[in-house]
């Protein structure tokens, strides 16, 4: 039974039928798919700073680190990711700024 109550946590933002409430409505909750940390799904334990291909997908044009609310990464993985990006920047694998 304890398992069920744990899993009910997922349904917090199920939203209302016919979702997509107009912007600015305070009362209505808008439907949003719950993001799952991609690294948890893939069971990543260590994010390598040499993996440029992976890291570039987390630094959009302005070369800023993609925030958690958008990347959907969980806190431990976001931390690893940020660390890896900073290391990669140091050795010119990733840019500090978009010029």
């Amino acid at each position: 039974m304890s398992r069920n109550s744990e899993e009910r946590g997922f349904d917090l933002d199920e939203g209302r039928p016919g979702g997509g409430a107009p912007h600015g409505r305070t009362g209505g909750r808008r439907f949003r798919r719950r993001k799952v940390c991609r690294f948890c799904v893939d069971k990543v334990d260590y994010i390598d700073f040499k993996d440029v291909k992976l890291l570039t997908s987390y630094v959009p044009e302005r070369s800023k680190i993609l925030p958690r609310r958008i990347s959907g990464a969980c806190a431990p993985h976001q931390r690893m990711l940020a660390e890896a990006i900073k290391r990669a920047r140091n050795i010119a694998l990733l840019p500090y700024t978009a010029d």
Partner: peptide, 29 residues
């Protein structure tokens, strides 16, 4: 640390063999 995380995941998986089998939808479970 990565090894530790891996070990923990393995332990968790053996403890809850059906975790995730219910498809993540609380209602279904």
């Amino acid at each position: 640390r990565a090894e530790k995380l891996k070990a923990r995941r393995a332990r968790k998986a053996s403890k809850r063999p059906f975790a995730g089998a219910s498809g993540g939808r609380g209602g279904a479970a």
